[in-house]
Nucleic acid binder design. Structure first.
Lengths: 170, 170
DNA sequence: ATAGTCATGTAATGAGTTACATGATTGC
DNA sequence: GCAATCATGTAACTCATTACATGACTAT
């Protein structure tokens, strides 16, 4: 049930429509919690029913602007501080690693080499984002930079691991 | 559709029943692709319908032993080498990080400190598994050790990041 | 006028989780 | 005899993805 909290979190910075949120997800949360348009509108409806958000304004083209309610804020804080983050994270990449015996060593090394390359590429992309977000002083930018740093460290580790793993295969 | 490939991968090491697979998942794949009993039996049915596995033996208590077929092996290899691993990985932990402005700095530091502790604990658990799997010379153990090393490096990175992040909050 | 963007909603499908339901065999 | 383990299957529910469907406003 994290989509709900992602929406609440974005609304905690100020009111927004479903359309606004969709763009906000794309620029800020796309790497940690992607959401589709369809999902957003459905979730906003449920959140409104549950009283965690309310329609704060209506505009042209049926635009509905949502604002987080007090209950919504309470739920968001509760989720951040009291609900345990999920432990197990599925990885279809690591799953493939378990089965590398099925393909021949050359292919297995190529597989790991590609992972290393892609990690390097992802790291470079994140560096690009960094340049973009560096200036922002809004909460999402400030804390987003912590998440960004996680990504930089993670992609480094991933590349180093893949390079190491490639050497293990003989 | 990775559960299907996880099952094919395990069956590539030899025939097994749903019950056997459930235990295999628990001891080998639980950290990269957990599966429930319910899911397994359903998937085995679908795999059999699709001709990727076949019932190779029947035993007491309605036990059905499944073996991977040639088509199954082909599909497994295709998945490993040609299908791109998923890029975006949802993280409800990092999602919380984006919203740390919602709670006060003391709580935010405590949140990050707990993440560091848990990463250290997870690392220690993995070390324990390492002792256990060190001896194995079957394919799953050999390649599982690569995945295990990933886990060790990842938990280290996570701990270091969380300690760093904690210091960023003032 | 018309292209671009703003804006919302529904339906179908697939995947994962939890709970329900049942029964046979084995070892003590 | 009985507890533990072996063994399979189904149902309800939630979440995420893709596709379908529609229409209003704005700037040129």
């Amino acid at each position: 049930m994290s989509l709900r909290h992602a929406v609440l979190g974005l609304l905690s910075e100020g009111p927004a429509s479903g359309y606004d949120l969709l763009k906000l997800f794309d620029v800020s949360l796309s790497n940690v919690w992607p959401a589709t348009q369809s999902q957003l509108y459905t979730e906003l409806g449920k959140l409104a029913d549950a009283g965690l958000v309310s329609v704060s304004a209506e505009g042209p083209r049926g635009r509905k602007e949502y604002a987080i309610t007090e209950e919504g804020t309470a739920e968001l804080r509760h989720w951040i501080t009291e609900v345990e983050p999920t432990q197990v994270r599925r990885s279809d990449l690591l799953l493939r690693v378990f089965f590398l015996a099925e393909i021949d060593p050359d292919q297995a090394r190529a597989f790991l080499s590609k992972i290393a390359d892609e990690a390097a590429k992802n790291r470079a992309d994140l560096e690009g984002i960094r340049g973009f977000v560096e200036a922002g002083s809004d909460n999402l930018s400030v804390y987003g930079r912590l998440a960004l740093e996680w990504g930089l460290r993670f992609t480094d580790t991933q590349r180093e691991w893949a390079e190491w793993a490639e050497k293990q295969i003989r």
